[in-house]
Every structure is written in C-alpha cells, then in structure tokens.
C-alpha cells in the first residue's frame, strides 16, 4: 500500500475545494468548498497518522469534524439570514461595502 497516493488524493481534493471557494458565486457552494478543504485535511491527518504509527492524527480528525460542524452552524445562519434579506445567496450581490 503506497501512502503517498492518499496524500495526492487529499491534495487534489484540497485544490478542488480551494478552487470552488475562489470561483463559485453561490455562498452555499463556496461554503461546500471550504468543507471539502477541511475533509481533505482530515485525509492527510489520517494518512500521516498511519505513516507515523501515531494515533494523534486520527484524534485530530475528530477535532476537525467538531469544529467543521460548529462552523456550519454559524455559516449557514449567516448565509440564510442574507438570503432572507436579499432573496439571493450570490457572493457577487453583497457589494455595498466599498471604498
């Protein structure tokens, strides 16, 4: 079993997530990109835990899941609130604040 395959997969997932954040317009999709980045990181943590024969990486993955869940609560609340106000969740529409 070659562990570096998992690292490559995780990096690809992370890159897809980052690209989603930077390119997509809908705030929900952008947020899904962030979640993909977090889960790619979990894969890296677990892979390295296996490689080092050390459990702490797996434990960290749980911490990341908990934090991601908390982030979802706050993030969706903000996005839903914006959607109810503007009937749109596009990140291009929120453009009142500028120089």
């Amino acid at each position: 079993m070659n562990l570096s395959n998992y690292l490559v997969l995780a990096s690809v997932l992370f890159a897809i997530g980052a690209t989603t954040v930077l390119l997509r317009r809908n705030a929900i999709i952008v947020f899904m990109g962030v979640e993909l980045m977090l889960n790619a990181t979990n894969l890296v943590l677990v892979t390295f835990a296996r490689q080092h024969g050390d459990l702490s990486g797996q434990v960290m993955a749980f911490f990341v899941m908990v934090v991601a869940a908390a982030e979802v609560v706050v993030g969706l609340a903000i996005i839903v609130q914006i959607f109810r106000t503007r009937r749109s969740a596009s990140v291009d529409d929120v453009n009142l604040l500028k120089s």
Binding site: V21, M37, T41, V44, F48, E71, G75, I78, V94, L97
Partner: peptide, 28 residues
C-alpha cells in the same frame, strides 16, 4: 452588517482551512 459577517465568515473559514492543511503538513 450582514454583508460584513458573510465576507468575514467566508474568508475566515477559507483561511482557517488553509491553516489546518498547514498543520497537517507539519504533523507529517
């Protein structure tokens, strides 16, 4: 105010994901 929250949240979540990936690399 809501716009500020959304911008802060999306950018903040994005960079904390980057931070976390850095943590994973240092763990490796």
């Amino acid at each position: 105010s809501q716009e500020a929250a959304m911008k802060y949240f999306l950018l903040g979540a994005f960079t904390s994901a980057i931070f976390l990936f850095g943590v994973a690399l240092l763990y490796g």
